[in-house]
Amino acid sequence: MNLKALVSVTGKPGLFKLIGQNKGGFILESLDEQKKKSVVNLATNKMATLEDITVYGLGEDLKLVDILERMKEKGTTPDPKSDGKTLRNFFRDVAPDHDEERVYSSDIKKIISWYNIIKELPLFDEDRPTSADADTTATQKTGDD
Rank of each mutant, 00 (worst) to 15 (best):
A5G: 09
S8A: 11
S8K: 11
T10Q: 08
K12P: 02
P13S: 09
F16N: 03
F16C: 00
K17F: 04
L18G: 02
I19D: 05
Q21Y: 15
N22E: 11
G24M: 10
F26M: 14
F26Y: 15
F26R: 12
I27Y: 09
L28G: 05
E29W: 03
S30V: 01
L31F: 04
D32H: 00
E33I: 06
E33G: 03
E33N: 06
Q34A: 11
V39T: 13
N41I: 11
L42T: 12
L42P: 15
L42I: 13
T44R: 10
N45D: 12
K46A: 03
M47F: 02
A48W: 12
L50M: 14
D52T: 13
I53P: 09
I53W: 06
T54S: 08
T54F: 11
Y56G: 08
G57E: 09
G59Y: 15
E60Y: 13
E60D: 15
L62P: 07
K63Q: 12
D66C: 08
I67S: 03
L68E: 10
R70Q: 10
R70Y: 08
M71A: 05
K72R: 14
K72M: 07
E73Y: 09
K74V: 07
T77Q: 10
S82N: 07
D83C: 01
T86M: 04
T86D: 12
F90K: 02
R92W: 11
D93Q: 15
V94R: 05
D97E: 12
D99T: 12
D99S: 14
E100A: 14
R102C: 03
V103S: 06
Y104Q: 15
S105C: 09
D107I: 02
I108N: 06
K110P: 01
W114D: 10
I118H: 04
K119F: 03
E120C: 06
P122T: 09
P122I: 09
P122E: 08
E126Y: 06
D127Y: 04
P129T: 08
S131K: 14
D133I: 00
T136H: 08
T136W: 07
T136D: 05
T137D: 02
Q140M: 09
D145C: 00
